[in-house]
Write a protein that binds this DNA or RNA. Structure first.
Lengths: 255, 255
DNA sequence: AGGAGCGGCCCGGTGAGTGGAACGCTCCCG
DNA sequence: CGGGAGCGTTCCACTCACCGGGCCGCTCCT
């Protein structure tokens, strides 16, 4: 609803457009994009045209979607690259029948999953790099535990705490308490909060070179997977990943 | 060397900057970036500042590198996402001890590796999404075989055919002959051309929704891996991936 | 001490970018 | 079978955001 940046710089607007296409779950038409950004249609049209020229956006008929150029640029970003390199071998060792290992970072108020290793890595149904809510996943809570309170509190605003299952924690105070405990113990748990029938645990990895915080998690169905048994393994994994990724390792709060 | 676009659009320049950072294999200083793009230092400074604001670029001290925003955007790009989803399960089945399976697309005159599954996916040393030369890899040659001659020929310019080993094919005519044969047979081979001691085969997958061509390859050391034995398996794999990825499947030239 | 290189910043001039308005088109609905 | 609501597209005069030469202070080398 308007407001936002108010800085009509070409670049800012271009990224607004890209952001809309990123959040959309499919190609969009010109008018939708213009409406979603608040940028006049004529301007949107021209900017999108330029983005298409750069292959940052592709156009199929009258629909626009993100283009290969962005994928190529994204693949070249150093931080996640090093994190992946450091984490993949370790993740492979952790992964086992009936559980999935996820690597994620905190980005734009969500969990950005960077890598996923499943079933001894033999299967990997969905591609990695999807977004998940911070409050309803173990990975998210492990990430929240690594940020200072002034960053944390806005992320716990009630409007952000959408109930995804009847078990999702939607009370800011309760969530904050959990975060405090995660900080102390170095483990986050999740039970049916993101999807009924699944549980998970996650542990913080630390803060990468430029303030990006990372965490690693394991998840599975009840019965096939018992989170409390894996705490130690996962913590050791995180401790091995951190230095290799050039991260300032996370360590539990001592008070 | 100057020339290039000559259209001083903000967006064009921004992507030039990002391109330089993409090609660089580490963070760069302001002056280097300005020199590499030909954009005046003052302008480069301001543009980089704006990109940093968008988190498309990160700044550590006085060095600039690509930022998380680009990674996030890149992860949301539809084409490679669907390709990965379609290919991963199939790749997992192909992968075995002693051989690596690669999925790649043709992008900006190079092979852009999208996914890599190694050793039954248990190990995966380097992260995927690196660039490789078209002329010195089986994957690259399988991609070249899928483009029309008017696109192909510029890519075979002698200046592009750098010799990476003594066995790299650097003669445009010889390479063009190979491409013709690949078109007919639907398989590309590579022997010591990219790295001595390794061989590979690759087969075309087809053309995705917006003109992106894809291919799949297997590679390994001599002795541990015999390319000619896997031709059929790989062709079947490609045939299974194509429809799932929404691709127009490639089919051998019939003359 | 000097100077070569760096990143950072100022400020007047100007053309790239802007966006309201108008166009042709395809649909859908009365 | 009109008509009008939506779409993408184009035009063009205005104007303000962007430009970049020049300059500063700093840190390394020599």
């Amino acid at each position: 609803m308007a407001g936002s940046t108010d800085a009509p710089s070409v670049l800012g607007r271009a990224f607004e457009l890209l952001g809309v296409l990123e959040r959309a779950d499919g190609p969009m038409g010109l008018s939708d994009i213009a409406a979603a950004t608040g940028i006049p249609k004529a301007t949107t049209f021209r900017l999108l045209g330029q983005l298409v020229e750069q292959r940052a956006v592709v156009r199929k008929g009258e629909l626009y979607a993100l283009g290969m150029r962005l994928f190529a640029l994204g693949s070249a970003v150093g931080i996640p690259r090093r994190l992946q390199d450091a984490a993949l071998p370790v993740m492979g060792e952790l992964s086992d029948e009936g559980q999935v290992v996820h690597l994620g970072v905190l980005d734009a108020g969500t969990v950005l999953q960077i890598q996923r290793v499943a079933h001894g890595a033999r299967e990997s149904r969905s591609a990695p790099s999807t977004r998940r809510p911070l409050h309803a996943t173990a990975l998210g809570k492990a990430l929240l535990a690594q940020v200072p309170d002034e960053t944390l509190l806005p992320l716990l605003a009630p409007s952000r705490l959408e109930a995804l299952t009847p078990h999702t924690i939607t009370d800011p105070t309760r969530l904050h308490h959990q975060v405090v405990r995660i900080r102390q113990r170095g483990v986050a748990f999740e039970h049916d909060e993101w999807m009924v029938g699944y549980c998970a645990l996650a542990v913080p990895i630390g803060t990468l070179a430029d303030g990006v915080v990372a965490a690693i998690s394991m998840a599975g169905r009840y019965g096939r997977f018992d989170p409390s048994r894996s705490v130690h393994d996962l913590q050791r994994a995180a401790a091995r990943i951190a230095p290799r990724a050039g991260a300032q390792a996370w360590s539990p709060e001592v008070r």
